[in-house]
Structure formats: C-alpha cells, structure tokens
C-alpha cells in the first residue's frame, strides 16, 4: 500500500515538471511511432552535427582545380555526394544545413501553434460565456485571413527572415487547434469525472489542467505535428516564391533554386528530389509520432 500511495498521488501532485515529463513520455510501444521518432532523431542529429556532416560551405560557389565552375555535377561526380547546383554549390551540404532551418522553423512554429491553440481552446471551452464568444470571434477573424498571402505581406513589411513564417503561423494558425480543442473541451467538461472533481473540491484551474488538458494533449500534439509540416511547407512556398531569406539555406530555397534553374528539364533529380523527400519525411514523422501519443494517452484504444 505505501508504495502504491507514493507512486501515483505523488505524480498527480508532482507539479508542472512531472506532468510535462509524463506528457513527453515517448511512444515506444508502437512500431510506426518508433519509426517516426527515428526520423526525428536522424534529422535532429543531422541538424546538430551539420558542421561535421557537410562537405562544403552550402553557399560557397565551387570551382574545379582548373578554375572552371563546378556546376551541374551528377551525384558522386568529382566527390560531390549529391552533385552540385547550376551555380556550383554542393547539394549535400545544402541538404544538411537545410535540416537546421527546417527543424528550427518547424519546432518553434509547432510549439507556438499548439500552445496558443490549446490555451485558447481550453479557456474558451471550459469557461464559456463571453470569454468563449470573444475568443471564437477572434478565431473567425483568423479564419478569414488567407494564410499564404498573409505571410507574403508580412515578409514584405518585415525583413526577409525565416521567423516571419513562425510569426505568421502563431498569429493565424492557432485557429484550427483552438476550435478543435474547444469542441473537445465542451464535451469533456460535461464528463462525470469533471463533475466528480468539482464535488470533491477541485478548483477550476485544477480541473482544467489535471482532468481536461491531459485528454486533449494528443490533439495538441497532432496539431503541433501538423504545424511542423505546415511551417516547413510554408517556408518552402515562401522561399519558392522568392520571399525567403536568400542568406539562409533551407529545403525551400533549394527547391526554388532548382526550379529557377530548370532542374526538371535537365533531369537533375538529385537536386530537387532529396529536399522534397526530406520535407515529406519530417511531415510524415510528425503524424506517426502523434498517432503513438494518442495510444499512450488513451490506454483503452489498445486493449
């Protein structure tokens, strides 16, 4: 009895750190989620050790020993792992450094979107009334903003930077997360155990964070992982349209570069397939991981 007592109420009362740790419990039971995690780990390692992995400076224009431009090399040719671009830049090194900006944008945008959306959804759904009305009208306004043009306008007003995408997502994309989580909270707050918590004296704050929030966490993760994909895709679109930061190498700028150099017509698949593949992998990994979280947080799904 004493051990059982210590373990669980302790965790329940263990404060924010304990709850966060439980929230971050990695979904190692589901093979697909493990696959997703492995992709994340791979990209995170790549981003961290980019300096070691890259063979060249990604923006450096490379020359042969005879001072010819080392452009349009095929993979493996002259020791360039993935060949070079039409301007003589090393594609492999660009791909490696691209993972840095992708993860930076993706993760910060995901955190912003999931955090803002979750808080808005929780507050609106639980407290209802005028708070709900105000927040949902704000969401309506956000829904009325066309996202890509908004990012473009924002980029035009601000310095070109990858952070524009993060800012735009934080300003606009919380709307989906907020709406969905609000509707979930509306149904959760009528659950008998929420009422039971109130009867036994739990405050609103405690009910929201202990009884309701953990149940919508998989939704937050889901929308967070969608946001990772969206952020990377949006950054790619913005770069592709030429509004990106020309000094930052990202998979989007690589695609834009390849497109502008008509890589498709020269059949330079080694140039645009790898960044495209990387984008797809990271986005898919997000979904796989959130699926795994869902099974952890709703143990009944499994049994």
């Amino acid at each position: 009895m004493p051990e059982a007592m210590d373990a669980s109420p302790g965790a329940a009362a263990g404060g924010l750190a304990g709850r966060l740790w439980r929230g971050l419990r990695l979904p190692l039971g589901d093979p697909l989620a493990v696959f997703g995690l492995m992709i994340y780990v791979l990209f995170i390692l790549t981003a961290v050790f980019a300096d070691q992995l890259a063979t060249h400076d990604p923006t450096e224009i490379l020359y042969t020993p005879d001072y010819d431009l080392a452009a349009d090399r095929r993979p493996g040719e002259d020791g360039y792992i993935l060949g070079t671009t039409s301007l003589g830049r090393d594609i492999w090194s660009q791909l490696v450094y691209g993972s840095r900006s992708a993860l930076l944008i993706g993760l910060t945008a995901a955190v912003m979107v999931a955090l803002i959306g979750t808080l808005v959804g929780l507050v609106a759904g639980y407290f209802g009334g005028w708070v709900d009305a105000v927040l949902m009208r704000l969401a309506d306004i956000a829904f009325g903003i066309p996202f890509l043009p908004f990012v473009i306008v924002l980029s035009a007003f601000l310095e070109p930077s990858i952070w524009n995408v993060v800012l735009a997502m934080a300003l606009v994309l919380w709307r989906d997360t907020g709406r969905v989580i609000r509707s979930q909270v509306l149904s959760l707050r009528t659950r008998a155990y929420v009422e039971a918590a109130r009867v036994c004296g739990s405050s609103d704050l405690k009910i929201v964070f202990r009884h309701i929030a953990p149940n919508i966490l998989p939704l937050s993760f889901l929308y967070g992982s969608i946001a990772i994909g969206w952020a990377i895709l949006t950054e790619a679109s913005i770069s592709f349209l030429g509004f990106g930061d020309p000094d930052t190498i990202s998979w989007g700028t690589m695609l834009q570069d390849a497109y502008a150099s008509q890589a498709l017509s020269t059949r330079a698949f080694h140039w645009f397939v790898p960044p495209g593949l990387c984008i797809i992998l990271v986005v898919v990994a997000g979904f796989l991981v959130s699926r795994g979280y869902e099974e952890i947080l709703f143990p009944k799904l499994k049994e």
Binding site: A4, A7, P9, A11, A12, A13, A192, E195, A196, A197
Partner: peptide
C-alpha cells in the same frame, strides 16, 4: 455518481483518484 465507469478519470490510478479530495481538503 450514476455511472461509475465515467465518474473516475480513466487516466488516474485509483490511488490518485482517491488522493484528490484529500489534497483539496
């Protein structure tokens, strides 16, 4: 409560569910 299957948070152990009123009081 009428429905004991719903009156307890499915994510809480029985010990945690029983600790809640004690903690609040």
């Amino acid at each position: 409560f009428q429905n004991p299957f719903e009156a307890l948070n499915p994510r809480f152990t029985i010990a945690a569910a029983l600790a809640e009123p004690l903690e609040n009081a």
